Computed example of a mutant assay.
Amino acid sequence: MNNMKFTFISVFILGLFSCAEKKGEEISSTFREVHSYQLNLDRFTSPAEDYYQYIKNWKGQEAYAFHVMGKEEIKLYNLGNGALIETLAYGDNQPNLQSGIHDFYILNEDSIFLNRRRAYKVYLINQEFEIVKAMDFMGKNDEIDKNTGWPKSKETFMPVWSRNRFFRKIGDKIFVSGAPNMKATSIDATNTKTLLNSYSLGTEEITPLLGYPEKMQGKIWGEFFDMVSSDYSQEEDFFVHSYAADGRVYIMDQAMHVIHDFEAFPKGYKNVPPLTVKEIESTDALSSHWQDNDLFGSIHWDPYRKLIYRIMEEPNVSYNKDMLLDPLERARNMVVMAFDTKQDYRKVAEMRLKKSEKGIYLDRCFVNEKGFNITYVDLENEDKLYFKTFLVE
């Protein structure tokens, strides 16, 4: 971690003016919509489900899956014809998993990971819904504080991989995002090293790997601007990380040493200010801070075109307190950027996707052979869910 800290310090010194628009910046390509997928959702599946996954091959079909909480089911839809392929009713078939499951990850037909967050456990089940392995993320000497409901140790983290956070099996390890065991309005929260962690399937050893850049440490960002989104290149064995409040993107190896970093923000981007002590004492001020500033979202590696895509959500000038509870109501205009690794990570394309009374784009994206796919919700027909496919040309 010392190497990473040194690199982050260097990045900060060299990048003091990183969020000023580059003079003479030229964008050589554009995003073009080339295709559209349509899913015909059943009455139990919302177009704004929080837990979802693109699956390249489910029993020979390209699929998209949702976890429908409350029903303890994972539903898989065929991307080709939009029909429901299969419902995995794990709750009906596995009594030990009938409540508390949030995140899921389908590795293949016989390996599905289910996350019981508040129990600090991740379960691996097979196609017969048998528990193959239970992974415990509670420290061996730790326990839950009865007063707070949180683990007593600050080293313990909650495995979480919704909201574009990360989960992946790489070799004999699981790499998983972790929610620090600290309030997001605490200065200490930025000292964590548990934003990404590895879990050895053989030894069960848990290793914290990723913290915040030096310039974000010692400041208060709140629960939305303290997030990091990640992706992984299997072919070239590197991670790509995007912090919600940082204009740079970081390329790292499995030990989280920085291989390369670069400016990755759109025209007109303004630095996100940290929260003040006065603001963290006000719920209204916290909401305003979230909605009044640019927010970097998901990041995606495109192995077919050797591009990196980064999403930024623009400020929502028309928000109110009530809409914050509804993911469709609180949706914001998005800027989508593409960076070419073959051109020294230069930004080659940028587009703005605006919400309207008819429909909105959501930061729920995936890459496949056709291109970069972005969720679109038709507000006049929420039984359909669309993915608009874009190519950089």
Score class of each variant (00 low, 15 high):
Lys183Arg: 13
Arg165Gly: 02
Asn96Trp: 12
Ile311Trp: 00
Ala63Trp: 01
Lys354Thr: 14
His241Glu: 04
Val335Ile: 05
Asn57Val: 03
Gln98Met: 10
Leu79Asn: 07
Ala349Leu: 03
Ala65Gln: 12
Val277Cys: 04
Lys306Pro: 10
Leu107Ala: 14
Lys169Val: 14
Leu196Cys: 06
Phe387Ala: 06
Phe17Ile: 10
Phe262Cys: 11
Val258Gly: 12
Gly297Ala: 00
Thr341Pro: 06
Val272Met: 01
Lys388Met: 15
Asp142Arg: 00
Gly247Gln: 02
Gly60Ile: 06
Gln38Leu: 06
His257Asp: 14
Ser356Gly: 09
Lys152Asn: 11
Glu205Cys: 07
Ala65Pro: 01
Asn40Ile: 13
Asp246Cys: 13
Met138Ser: 07
Asp302Thr: 02
Leu41Thr: 05
Leu210Cys: 01
Tyr243Ser: 08
Asn381Pro: 01
Asn316Ala: 12
Val132Leu: 10
Asp110Gly: 13
Arg352Gln: 14
Lys133Arg: 09
Pro315Tyr: 02
Val348Pro: 08
Glu143Val: 09
Phe166Leu: 08
Gly202Ile: 10
Lys342Asn: 13
Val34Asn: 10
Lys384Asn: 07
Phe167Ser: 03
Asp378Gly: 11
Phe12Gly: 04
Leu79His: 03
Tyr120Ile: 06
Ile259Ala: 04
Val367Tyr: 07
Asn78Pro: 04
Arg168Trp: 12
Leu209Val: 08
Leu209Cys: 02
Lys347Thr: 12
Ile220Ser: 00
Asp136Leu: 03
Lys169Ser: 10
Glu369Pro: 07
Thr45Tyr: 04
Arg364Trp: 12
Pro213Met: 10
Gly100Met: 04
Glu393Tyr: 05
Leu196Lys: 11
Leu385Asn: 06
Ala83Gln: 05
Arg165Val: 00
Val34Arg: 08
Asn93Glu: 07
Leu209Arg: 11
Asn373Asp: 06
Asp136His: 14
Asp340Val: 02
Pro208Lys: 13
Ala331Leu: 01
Glu380Ser: 13
Ala20Pro: 08
Lys306Met: 02
Lys193Gly: 07
Arg43Ile: 12
Gly211Val: 06
Glu382Cys: 10
Asn126Ala: 14
Asn164Gly: 04
Val392Gln: 07
Lys270Val: 07
Arg352Pro: 09
Ile170Met: 05
Lys23Glu: 04
Asp344Val: 10
Thr156Glu: 08
Pro274Glu: 10
Met69Ala: 03
Arg330Thr: 01
Lys121Met: 10
Val160Cys: 10
Ser288Asp: 12
Lys267Gly: 07
Lys56Asp: 15
Asn57Asp: 05
Val272Asn: 04
Glu263Tyr: 05
Glu214Gln: 14
Glu369Thr: 15
Lys56Ile: 11
Lys370Thr: 03
Val336Thr: 03
Phe262Met: 04
Lys388Cys: 15
Glu86Thr: 07
Ala244Arg: 01
Gly211Ile: 05
Asp92Ser: 12
Asn96Leu: 15
Ser356Glu: 03
Trp221Cys: 09
Lys154Gln: 12
Ile311Pro: 00
Ala338Val: 01
Pro266Phe: 09
Phe387Pro: 12
Asn40His: 09
Ala244Lys: 00
His289Glu: 02
His102Pro: 05
